[in-house]
Design a protein around this nucleic acid. Structure first.
Lengths: 155, 155
DNA sequence: ATTGAAAGAGTCTCAGT
DNA sequence: ACTGAGACTCTTTCAAT
């Protein structure tokens, strides 16, 4: 059985605020949400203990770092039983930042992040095509990220 | 002209470490990278000023929060000139957490995050299909996230 | 540029409500 | 549960190198 989720409005507010920016003091976040800094602290501690909150991550503008090219790859497998073996191989390619096993046309969906088109070409042609079990791939290069945001929890 | 990127090994190490976990003190990160905490501080300040580092975000396990259903949607537009208008409409749907304008089969690629299949059905059927300019969509439901990680910068 | 130390700010704990 | 205050830790600044 799945554990009962029992969050109140304050928990959701804290999560939504801090998913956006974690760089706010408990005192200030408390002021914003009309409780004390101590209460914010207790709630975050609870969420950490529950495994809901898993620390913080630096928010880096990878585009500004020169990682300009994002592509999505639809992957057709020869047989779906090859899934585990193919995941293992794909994991070795550092440019692949995300991989999902999906319903629909493709067996899997990968996201690739590269510095330029020639690096993308290398990954697609020299690395992906070598993997046994991949029948073929379809590439969708992102020309623009229209938006990216967090889901709003609790409503 | 694009500004010249001039990062040294230490900058890259700091970024790679803190993209994974930002929850480390400057003193401890300094020890790990064989410099003083003060130097870490100066570098991070520089990266913030440059706009490379844009604060920190809380790392939340959304699956554990009940957001179990992730789907990718390939969107066909009637005319590509409708792009801006359609983006504007898609932005109004909070379940859509990411939207990219892409080459290939589809005009756009969306990522949706929902609590359950019935919420996904609602978004796909009642919200997406109402938007003028969308010819049709293809849905890929994620059955499993095989992995997700950061790109490793600087090598 | 890097360091180490002092000042300032934030986190964490806990007794009281 | 929530609060406020004290103890502790981390960030930030800065003079020296």
């Amino acid at each position: 059985m799945t554990s009962k989720l029992n969050f109140d409005k304050l928990d959701y507010q804290i999560i939504n605020e801090m998913m956006e920016t974690a760089e706010i003091s408990y005192a200030d976040l408390g002021k914003k949400l009309f409780v004390s800094g101590g209460t914010i602290h207790v709630r975050i501690k609870k969420l950490q203990t529950m495994g809901i909150v898993k620390g913080t991550k630096l928010n880096v503008d990878l585009k500004a770092m020169g990682y300009d090219v994002i592509a999505f790859i639809g992957i057709y497998l020869e047989k779906s039983s090859l899934y585990d073996a193919v995941v293992k191989e794909l994991r070795k390619i550092p440019e692949i930042v995300r991989l999902n096993y999906t319903t629909g046309n493709y067996s899997m969906f990968a996201e690739i992040m590269c510095r330029d088109i020639s690096q993308l070409r290398y990954v697609l042609h020299d690395e992906l095509q070598k993997i046994k079990g991949i029948e073929r791939t379809e590439t969708f290069i992102s020309l623009e990220e229209s938006f990216r945001r967090n889901v709003v929890v609790g409503d």
